[in-house]
Design a protein around this nucleic acid. Structure first.
Lengths: 222, 222
DNA sequence: TCCTAATTTTAGGCAAGCCTAAATATTGCC
DNA sequence: GGCAATATTTAGGCTTGCCTAAAATTAGGA
């Protein structure tokens, strides 16, 4: 019943992204900028999506998603982020390379696929960039967190979670004096193997492997 | 350089499938039938693909793939079959449900993705239907297989593939407790209608119609 | 408020893919 | 070989998405 083209899906997602923070409406130009297309094309598409009941459009007034449009957009975000987890966790892509591929994978149509993927990945709550993954009903956890590997030297942050909670990994963290709530500062990142040197509050300096950096969620404090 | 649309890719694949067995050229009608589209649309597309150098087209003469076209088609088959392995092996889909999803996944463009997926799946040589998966250079393993209908009473063999992978056929096999790897022994062949009686390992005896026997590939084990 | 600048929409066009109907070419049978 | 049946191509049209240029609307500063 609601089979959208990839183009339509991309517009929905753009409107969603623009309106998710500030709850104003999305302007034609903002959408055009986000999609690298012309304002005229945007107007074209907005009319079509409006006719399908996926967003509310009034000339010169910008648009907001309808409930149905919002559901569809949220589901796209869910698919995008689940695929990113798959690419990083299973195929060992580095987190900064997965976006373009996930952008393609998110358009694959199969609810069963998404559900099975979710189970396979053990229902992750956050993607490799620390962004929350909406569940099947559209709800998402609220936490602004990022992977240690995405921080830069100088960043100060608090450990707020792990991606993978295996016993061995948690034990390792324990040994390193890292636990939820631990404050740390990034000193240096070694690009050649992805390892990072960090300093704890008491001044202890430790080096963490790439694998560890990819599994630690932090909340920036500065 | 060679970025094809999904439609173009689907046509290439259809031509590939039609020409891979008998090495005659693919006719307009055969392609139209395979793609459930009109002959006129096929002619349209053949001209375009010919202009791109992906196949050799002469009016009223049918087409064959060019070397480049053949490479691209083989790569599509590779991607399709790798994704099928992923869906069955990792996500536990039943083998009769994976085709449509793989049909979508095969169009995702990323060589690195395919390579990593291949490694992740441990470079499988055959897909869940028993069809060989071309390697990155286009070569595929040869399956020593015969149709069930060509076996004689007394022969012992293992199911290694199907000729026709429609959902209904696969579901039927499932019901009959036949799947890849199933061992069986031919008990009797009824020449008047081509049906065959076989025994499974556990002693179960079943009778299969001629149509089924013509669609099951086996590897003789004795 | 008024007028210019910025934004948005409309008009008109184009390519990709699809369709049906009509024209043309090929095949195969007598 | 000739002619009917079949296969293929051409012609003309449609939708989707994109474009540019021009027109219309809105917003913001003097």
């Amino acid at each position: 019943m609601d089979v959208l083209t990839q183009a339509e899906e991309n517009y929905l997602k753009a409107v969603f992204k623009i309106t998710e923070n500030d709850d104003k409406s999305a302007s034609t130009n903002a959408i055009a900028a986000m999609m690298s297309t012309s304002a005229a094309s945007v107007t074209d598409m907005l009319k079509r999506l409006s006719a399908k009941g996926l967003l509310h459009y009034e000339k010169h007034r910008g648009v907001i998603l309808s409930e149905r449009g919002s559901e569809l957009a949220t589901n796209l975000v869910r698919k995008h982020r689940l695929w990113e987890v798959f690419l990083v966790k299973m195929l060992h892509f580095s987190w900064d390379k997965v976006h373009d591929i996930a952008e393609q994978l998110e358009h694959v149509q199969s609810d069963e696929l998404v559900e099975r993927l979710d189970v396979y990945l053990e229902r992750p709550q956050f993607d490799p960039h620390g962004d929350p993954i909406p569940d099947a009903s559209g709800k998402m956890a609220m936490r602004k967190q990022v992977l240690l590997s995405s921080l830069d030297p100088g960043d100060q942050a608090v450990v707020v979670g792990v991606q993978e909670s295996t016993a061995t990994f948690l034990q390792y963290l324990d040994k390193m004096q890292l636990s939820l709530g631990t404050n740390l500062r990034v000193l240096e990142r070694f690009d050649y193997d992805g390892s990072m040197k960090i300093a704890l509050n008491d001044g202890t300096e430790i080096t963490l492997s790439h694998k560890v950096c990819e599994n630690l969620f932090l909340q920036k404090s500065k």
